[in-house]
């Protein structure tokens, strides 16, 4: 199969990208790393298992979805709005981080990560989960299970799972409207 290029346009972290000629079948992760210099989405397994490479897709209805970039072609994102780990924190006009997102802040406070390789994926996964909880709040007793289920597919080789879980639980409990009493 010849790898012809095809023009593509998308929005990444609120910035319009393209049209840019991108080889068909190039994986999204390679596009982010090589074309946009956004290297935060990590290459882990390259097989769609570890979820270190995920990004947020902002759907047209305003909801957020998580997508793996190591096994999904760049052209699948044509016309879509994507948020990578680099676009999660608040930044000033110079691009310097001014405010971490609540999830990022909680991960630091809970010492959730050690080597940090899986952290971008966990931030993305937790961000998408909290977005869902805003629309579909869960009861307090179900909260741990819901977090576990949502983040279960993310692999952490330092086994920091419990601290990730505690951090996300903290954010969910502190944010009004996510957990019903």
């Amino acid at each position: 199969m010849t790898r012809a290029t095809k023009p593509m346009s998308l929005t990444v972290n609120d910035r319009q990208v393209g049209p840019v000629a991108v080889p068909e079948g190039l994986m999204m992760q390679d596009f982010l790393h090589e074309y946009l210099n956004l290297t935060g989405a990590r290459m882990g397994c390259g097989q769609g298992i570890c979820h270190a490479c995920t990004v947020v897709v902002e759907e047209e209805d305003g909801t957020l979805a998580e997508m793996r970039t190591c096994i999904v072609g760049a052209h699948w994102f044509e016309g879509r709005r994507v948020r990578t780990i680099e676009g999660i924190a608040e930044r000033d006009t110079d691009g310097a981080v001014t405010d971490l997102s609540p999830v990022q802040q909680a991960f630091i406070e809970h010492f959730s990560f050690q080597c940090g390789y899986c952290t971008p994926g966990f931030v993305i996964g937790a961000t998408v989960l909290l977005d869902r909880l805003q629309r579909e709040p869960v009861s307090r007793e179900d909260l741990e299970e819901v977090i576990t289920e949502a983040l279960d597919k993310h692999i952490c080789r330092c086994t920091g799972y419990i601290r990730y879980l505690e951090a996300v639980r903290d954010v969910a409990l502190k944010t009004p409207g996510l957990v019903t009493s």
Partner: peptide, 24 residues
């Protein structure tokens, strides 16, 4: 179909359908 295959399938099953040994 080719677009769909390259975007959603080829990451594991290979651009030419060759798969990845022990993986897909």
């Amino acid at each position: 179909a080719r677009g769909t295959y390259l975007n959603l399938c080829s990451g594991c099953h290979g651009a030419s359908g060759e798969g990845i040994p022990h993986v897909a």
